[in-house]
């Protein structure tokens, strides 16, 4: 059985990104293809902000997701509309908006909600973390 994870809670105001990480790690360790993709929406897209720096004595949540993603070849999608609104911008969007910077961390990709609908229809169960 394959799952999709929908993460909507802010990495700072909630534990959604933390709980989803623990769940994903446990599920993938038990069965490496049990999660098809993780879709971040609402404030959860802030997880992909490359410029955010946690204090040294706290967990680096973004890095933990990146490690998990590369270990299990797990795609991490950020909703493009939610991300651009919040300043999480890749090179393409940076050019489109004629900005001098981009801020999307490696290992994450910006996708429309249509990608989420596809994930939804190609997996058995979706779990929301908020």
């Amino acid at each position: 059985m394959q799952h999709t994870l929908l993460v909507t809670g802010s990495p700072y105001q909630s534990k959604a990104c933390h709980s989803a990480l623990c769940f994903a790690r446990a599920a993938l360790t038990a069965q490496p293809d049990s999660i098809k993709g993780v879709f971040f929406y609402e404030d959860a897209v802030l997880i992909g902000n490359d410029l955010a720096q946690p204090p040294r004595d706290e967990i680096n949540l973004k890095q933990a997701w990146q490690t998990l993603a590369s270990e299990f070849n797990l795609p991490l999608y950020l909703c493009i509309a939610a991300a651009v609104r919040r300043g999480v911008i890749n090179e393409t969007e940076s050019k489109r908006y004629e900005l001098n910077h981009h801020s999307l961390s490696s290992g994450f990709q910006l996708e429309g909600l249509g990608t989420f609908v596809e994930l939804m229809n190609s997996t058995q169960k979706i779990i929301q973390f908020r």
């Binding site: 929406y41 609402e42 509309a81 429309g112 909600l113 989420f116 609908v117």
Partner: peptide
């Protein structure tokens, strides 16, 4: 903007 983003998702679906 939670309501807004929830409704956006509904419209996309």
């Amino acid at each position: 903007i939670a309501c807004k983003e929830g409704l956006d998702l509904a419209l996309v679906l």
